[in-house]
Design a protein around this nucleic acid. Sequence first.
DNA 1: AATATTTGGTTTATTTTATAAACTTGTTTA
DNA 2: TAAACAAGTTTATAAAATAAACCAAATATT
Lengths: 99, 99
Amino acid sequence: MLKPLNPILHSELRLAIMSILIATESADFVYLRTETGATAGNLSVQLDKLQRAGYIEIEKGFNGKLPRTTCSMSDKGREAMREYIDTLQEYLGTAIKSR
Amino acid sequence: MLKPLNPILHSELRLAIMSILIATESADFVYLRTETGATAGNLSVQLDKLQRAGYIEIEKGFNGKLPRTTCSMSDKGREAMREYIDTLQEYLGTAIKSR
DNA sequence: AATATTTGGTTTATTTTATAAACTTGTTTA
DNA sequence: TAAACAAGTTTATAAAATAAACCAAATATT
């Protein structure tokens, strides 16, 4: 029987966010928005879910006088991604290995 | 900007179904049910979506006197999976290659 | 110097999707 | 012959994703 895919990660936008953060260590709201093409509302909601899950940390500060929200991945998030990718590979089996 | 992940494939149960079919070429309703652990209702709905998308073919026949639904992947389905996996790898980048 | 616009978001409402519960049709079994 | 089972489908509910509307502060415009 197949393992379940972590439902927090198995979401297009949340996976996109996590994929960016796993590579860059830190990214702000505006960058995530342009990179993912998400609406601000959607991005806000999904960042919140990732934070509640303990997968990312969100720091609110200022860039000069303008607000700035900086996100980075937590160890828990990195571990969850590792497991998610493992599970994905179990699903996709040979199909993914052959590329 | 990240490419969208085919929403028909980016669903746990549908991905599980497609993953089984990509490896086995053909599987019946009962097998898919036990293998995925899905409820019959959910499986029925998701098979229907995959069929409407043209990703699988569904043949209804009999196993003795009992109904039997056999599913197999279409060329279009195989192509969609190829693309989906490519896109996933773009998302996951190095994280997936290192395993 | 008032007012309009832009930036960087959040909150709330709507739509879509996934899932489960209830039902159907026919078949064994007691 | 009635109860239980198999193999599904249909419909109702719960959860999720997404967008629309809103807000506060900063900057630009007339």
